[in-house]
């Protein structure tokens, strides 16, 4: 019963954030006009929005893809973070701690420096993110047989440092490309319909797989031995969730660049509100992550208007202090 209320509340918050994202900007759009214009696009519905052609263009070509991409990227990062946390039994596990971000950063820098062509960026980010996580996973797995939780996170940190070092080297080699690399690394969700279309299929597949593993992640939370004693192949479940979470990360990173802290802040806030069961944490993170990033993007593009702040700056500004709070709370539980 209470679960239903929480889900409905999260959906309402997401809808409200998306509506605000559509209305606010250099050209303010009225709520009624926006809703009518959206309704008009539905099949069998005809409504007169009262928006000028210019406003309609802003709504459908700029704001709508931006809000959709923001919601998708935020939801993916948050649900991937929750998935990683379940796999590693570590509330601090996050797409960025596990080598995904650094991997993508490296491959994208490589593409920008070597090819100079923007079209290959999404694919490069995708390969880099997946490669980074696999590298961290492989390293953590071989370092200790079976792969302890701490080892895997430490391996992620090592992989991140190593890949970032190469990336920085490449970037300094070609100073003229510095600004493009930085713009991508700091992230933005203004990629338009093309990015939305590219991201959507991965988003649907990855999110569906993750959401369907909520019960098994709850079983894993009692430890590998006991999960095995309960008849669950712990290693296999982990691998499936790990691949799905990496797919979600890669999709989010290739469409939105490197946006930190969403994957750790959102699932943690969700746990505080609705308890620790992954059956609740995963779907709620998807909704709340979307709302969080749409709001962050709204702040990023209005606070210094007409200039735009990179969205990663906004999420880090909110996320870093939050991260420290979680760290302190975790330490208290452990001691």
């Amino acid at each position: 019963m209470r679960k239903g209320v929480v889900f409905a509340g999260a959906a309402v918050v997401l809808a409200a954030c998306m509506a605000a994202g559509l209305m606010v900007g250099a050209a303010g759009l009225p709520l009624k006009g926006v809703l009518l214009a959206l309704a008009d696009r539905l099949p069998f519905v005809s409504a007169h929005s009262g928006l000028t052609p210019l406003e309609t263009g802003v709504l459908f070509e700029l704001r709508l893809p931006r809000v959709l991409l923001g919601a998708m990227v935020g939801g993916l990062l948050a649900v991937a973070g929750a998935g990683y946390q379940g796999v590693f039994r570590n509330p601090l596990a996050d797409p960025y701690l596990l080598g995904a971000a650094a991997g993508a950063g490296l491959t994208v820098t490589l593409v920008i420096v070597a090819v100079g062509d923007g079209a290959a960026v999404p694919l490069a980010a995708f390969c880099g993110a997946a490669g980074g996580v696999l590298l961290a996973y492989g390293l953590g797995h071989t370092a200790t047989r079976g792969g302890g939780t701490a080892t895997l996170v430490l391996a992620g940190v090592a992989v991140t440092s190593f890949l970032t070092a190469i990336q920085t080297f490449l970037q300094q080699l070609k100073v003229e490309e510095l600004q493009r690399v930085y713009a991508w690394i700091l992230g933005d969700v203004g990629g338009g319909w093309e990015q939305v279309a590219m991201c959507a299929p991965y988003a649907v597949v990855a999110a569906a797989i993750l959401l369907l593993h909520g019960r098994l992640l709850d079983v894993l939370s009692v430890g590998d031995d006991e999960a095995s004693a309960l008849g669950v192949r712990a290693g296999r479940v982990r691998l499936v969730v790990l691949v799905a979470a990496s797919l979600a990360t890669a999709a989010a990173v290739s469409a939105g660049g490197l946006i930190g802290f969403v994957g750790v802040v959102v699932p943690h806030a969700v746990r505080r509100l609705a308890g620790g069961s992954y059956r609740v944490v995963l779907p709620l993170s998807l909704l709340a992550g979307g709302a969080f990033l749409v709001t962050a993007d709204l702040i990023a593009r209005t606070v210094l208007a007409p200039a735009e702040l990179p969205i990663g700056v906004v999420t880090a500004f909110v996320g870093a202090p939050f991260f420290v709070t979680i760290l302190r709370a975790t330490r208290k539980v452990e001691t």
Binding site: S221, V222, D225, E226, A229, G231, G276
Partner: peptide, 18 residues
């Protein structure tokens, strides 16, 4: 196997908010 054998380890991991 889990239907014929039930196992309780020495120090079970109890998720705090379960």
């Amino acid at each position: 196997r889990a239907r014929v054998l039930a196992y309780a380890p020495q120090s079970p991991l109890l998720p705090p908010d379960m």
